[in-house]
Write a protein that binds this DNA or RNA. Structure first.
Lengths: 348, 348
DNA sequence: TTTTAACACGAAAACGTTTTCGGTGGTTTG
DNA sequence: CAAACCACCGAAAACGTTTTCGTGTTAAAA
């Protein structure tokens, strides 16, 4: 087992100084052609690669991006990571991940862990618990230490930083309007509690769409799910709630769900109640994942373009990291990614 | 913007030496109670945290695990990452990810990138292209430099390292046997080309199950898909092939598919051809993902326990990293994770 | 009073780089 | 022949730690 070779060892072998080796390898004009050749040949032979850690320490720059997400087994977040990874690699950065599991404390711990020199900046989506508690001190602290943050999707308006979001309000409005245009007269929404801001915004979009089209707002048609617990493991409860919704409102002919799972559950319940999709009931979901594409019937959804969000977030972060200008007034931008209504089989 | 505080700054402020500060913070007996109190209070006030990079350089240990996977937008791999992350964090390690996108060169580049000091060891699943080319020099090189590797799922038998796999052969056999017990007389398999070893093994399991039950082996019932291209974006081609299979073999009453997507495509084609599931056709897939759970009818699958694989892989790697004993003969273990046949609605 | 030991602390090396600043020795110039 | 110059190379500092070893001070023992 041969350890990785260092400058020092090369210097010793060739009987020159460490500085000479370093310069020779970087093709400095200070070094004669002869020595350069000699050193470079030797380095190539022993497959020399500079040690990243030493470089990081010297340069006070790790060329690594930290990404903190609530969970990874989730199509949207996977897509975002994919996007981040793509541009990060292209621009010479690595990606290190931390999972908060929707927990405030894990989010804090993970950030502290990475902030101590391991990374140059963060890309993150806020955990549910943090949103609920509205405790954002850790974000401010990291930023005050000169470590930039880019938030995506689940952001906090109170925090001044770069953000990448979709226009949840407009997108929801567009989706519901689509249902109205398709002839739906009684449209229900299955959404989250209001502390999840994306859920709240989507609900508002729903309301505005109804209002703009002079349709009545019926509070019993608004089902707010408490998903503080992991719904993946609580499907039965979810389906019961939805079934009750359908039974209480027999006229429902359209459903807008703020995520894939809610939409699929609605479809499942509808099937159970012998409601035909899309003839008797049209459904639109949010977040374009694998489920929508492969469900039967395949689900019409508002696609968020997760990969694009990741790419954009990475661009923003790296731009900031590599921006040399020492301006006093820091400026932050919020990029809005356009959503797309992907029409499949659950709408006419 | 205040930079992170260092030992040197604390030392300067308190008018003691750097060594004293370091020792005081680590509660060394060399330092008087007075100075300890003073230093610790000051450090707490300024929220001192040791710089990870400096520690890594000093200790020649990064406490970071590198994980290289072919793609991340994939339920199984996400699960594995989740597993790795869980035990890594528990044992004080970070996780850094690299995506090969099923490409040999990206796999090599990514590994070289990380191997230069950024991480202590690898957990990886081999890319399709690498498997096809059978060029494993980069694995041997990294290991010869003292960096341990743990492979999972898609492994190379030629390489001596720790491995975490499922018994693809046995699992496939079990699944097909199940179909036979359920009364299927003509069972087709939808699998990959043989260079993907997991595909090959599953095919062998299929064959053995038939043989053991004295059932005829019909070559036309074996459909080997060339998925060198990304099938997610080539669904139509896949479905055509499957449709042809059904049309050529009208007697088919059972399908074993080596992954979720193949299984779902088979179900889709069956629906198109008005074949009832599970009455006329029973289907079993491999890899327990979200699709299986939420499809209609929900798919009976062989679950691989991705998270468990990740956990096990991380345990193996960290154990090796922290094993102090300087044994000459290195020993490698291969852990086989038991699969589980999750029976849902596509089987009787 | 002198020797010894305990105590408290600091200097310096090491991890692997890059870079600045000074040297050599030789050659050209006035 | 001295001065200036150039081409080439090395010493050392710096990044932020930890740790070994040495040293000075003080109190206890001889």
């Amino acid at each position: 087992m041969k350890r990785k070779i260092t400058l020092k060892q090369i210097a010793k072998e060739l009987d020159v100084s460490i500085s000479t080796v370093s310069k020779a390898l970087r093709n400095s004009a200070e070094i004669s052609e002869d020595t350069k050749q000699k050193v470079q040949a030797f380095a190539k032979l022993y497959n020399y690669r500079p040690n990243n850690i030493a470089l990081s320490l010297k340069n006070r720059k790790t060329n690594t991006i930290g990404i903190i997400i609530p969970e990874i087994v989730h199509h949207f977040f996977s897509k975002v990571i994919q996007g981040v990874e793509t541009v990060a690699n292209k621009r010479g950065y690595n990606v290190i991940i931390g999972l908060s599991n929707e927990s405030f404390s894990k989010e804090v711990i993970n950030m502290e862990m990475l902030a101590n020199g391991s990374i140059d900046g963060f890309i993150l989506s806020i955990s549910k618990e943090t949103l609920l508690m509205q405790d954002y001190h850790h974000f401010n602290e990291t930023m005050s230490q000169g470590m930039p943050i880019v938030m995506f999707d689940r952001v906090a308006n109170e925090i001044q930083c770069d953000k990448v979001i979709v226009d949840d309000f407009k997108s929801a409005k567009k989706a519901v309007t689509k249902l109205i245009e398709n002839g739906c007269k009684s449209i229900a929404i299955i959404t989250t509690k209001d502390y999840i801001n994306v859920g709240r915004l989507r609900t508002q979009g729903y309301l505005e769409a109804l209002e703009n089209n002079k349709m009545p707002l019926t509070s019993s048609l608004i089902l707010k799910i408490d998903d503080s617990l992991d719904m993946e493991h609580n499907l039965a409860a979810l389906e019961n709630e939805i079934e009750q919704l359908f039974k209480d409102n027999k006229t429902i002919d359209g459903v807008f769900a703020v995520n894939e799972l809610y939409a699929l559950s609605a479809m499942k319940v509808a099937r159970k109640l012998n409601i035909k999709i899309p003839e008797d009931l049209q459904v639109i979901g949010f977040t374009d994942g694998v489920l929508s594409k492969h469900s039967t019937p395949s689900l019409t959804t508002v696609s968020q373009h997760g990969k694009l969000m990741g790419e954009k977030a990475a661009e923003l972060l790296i731009d900031k990291l590599e921006d040399q200008t020492e301006t006093e007034e820091e400026t932050f931008s919020t990029v809005v990614i356009e959503t797309e209504l992907v029409e499949r089989e659950t709408t006419i």
